[in-house]
Write a protein that binds this DNA or RNA. Structure first.
Lengths: 214, 214
DNA sequence: CCGGTATGTATACACCGTCCACAATCCTTA
DNA sequence: TAAGGATTGTGGACGGTGTATACATACCGG
């Protein structure tokens, strides 16, 4: 079960060059397969070709490294959302565009959970205030993190008159809850064995529920 | 941070009597505070006043013990749901009663997450097919596990004509997703700092969303 | 009563996170 | 340009974990 540490050609220089980056990359790779528990400090240093304690020059603890990996995962999710949003054509009706925006966020979220389960679990199964903190390390190219991107979509719904003003505050929590719950269910819950098409069906119904019930 | 192992009075008999039960209870207690990661085999054996390896006579591995704890947590959740359901008066309109049933399930779920966060996280943050498996260890007094209890509530909605037949299949996934997502959000997400009353507000809105959007 | 089988013990290993003292390198400043 | 402090990586150690293997004790059915 132990990872066969890929033996790098034993760096010739005493200094590494960019050890922090190397450790972070190794951590991301570990999280990618295996989730948060797989992010083990010693393995990361091994992959960077460095002695275990060297990590402590760049991260205060394993938790600290894990938080950095988590931020990277959230950032990747934000990028995926932005990509999905960018595919939208402004279209004729602002109401349709707003609805499509919300849907794009949901679709990107669920797709990310499916395609990068390890990163997804690392992003959300680790304590730490996920979304409220303004931290550029978690953001995408727009500088917004996933939660803020969801907020933008909801604002469009409000502006387009699809969402009434009294229902706007806190709406992100409702939408996020539903989509996140489904993601977990598909990832490690009873829906794990669903075929891709079946999963798509449930996803569509869920997004419809959010749209109608918000 | 290490648990001060409560030193039991050094059992006089060679045999323990009911070590499996003792280990399971210790595991549950560990999970209760600290969640799944806190379920450490050696600590459980310490609390049972027994040498570490003794555990292997009753559990194949730490994972195995963790699964047993998880089953106990799911069972506790099922009991909480049953209790909430039992408070309902059949009432005049079956439609109202059906709606109240679904709401009771949701309320019990969210309350359990709030009151027993450690057990809740253990129940759901551990792999293993949670709900589909027919396993009496996960069930409440009715013999139904949490997922099946949700199914019962949805069946009532169907019988009362609130839910159309074409929307019934898979409806548990939609409802479960929303409620579970919110629970996670409140537990370790951005909604952690909400006051109890604020949380209640969001909960009510979410349950309404499910009811309308299903 | 005796022997097999279930249960708990002893010892050991590999791995982990982390602390401490030390060595090599770099960078500023005199 | 030489010196010396600050950074960064090394070496060794400690206590913790899960688990394997061999052994000791107690129970139970013939």
């Amino acid at each position: 079960m132990a990872q066969a540490a890929v033996q790098l050609p034993a760096r010739s220089t005493y200094r590494h060059g960019d050890l922090r980056r190397a450790l972070l990359d190794a951590g991301i790779e570990l999280a990618r397969r295996g989730g948060p528990d797989a992010v083990v400090l010693r393995e990361a240093t091994r992959r960077a070709g460095v002695v275990p304690n060297a990590a402590y020059r760049h991260f205060a603890s394993r938790q600290d490294l894990l938080q950095a990996v988590r931020a990277a995962a959230l950032s990747a999710l934000a990028v995926a959302m932005e990509r999905e949003l960018a595919r939208l054509r402004p279209g004729a009706h602002p109401a349709d565009h707003a609805r499509a925006s919300l849907r794009a966020i949901g679709v990107a979220y669920l797709r990310f959970a499916r395609n990068e389960p390890g990163l997804f679990r690392t992003a959300f199964a680790v304590p730490g205030d996920p979304e409220t903190t303004v931290n550029s390390a978690m953001a995408g190219k727009t500088g917004l993190n996933p939660f803020q991107l969801l907020g933008v979509a909801l604002d469009r719904l409000l502006a387009a008159g699809v969402l009434t003003a009294d229902r706007r505050p806190g709406a992100e929590y409702l939408a996020w809850s539903a989509v996140h719950g489904l993601a977990m269910l598909v990832l490690e819950g009873p829906l794990r064995r669903l075929t891709r098409t079946q999963a798509r069906g449930i996803e569509q119904r869920l997004l419809a529920m959010v749209e109608n019930g918000l």
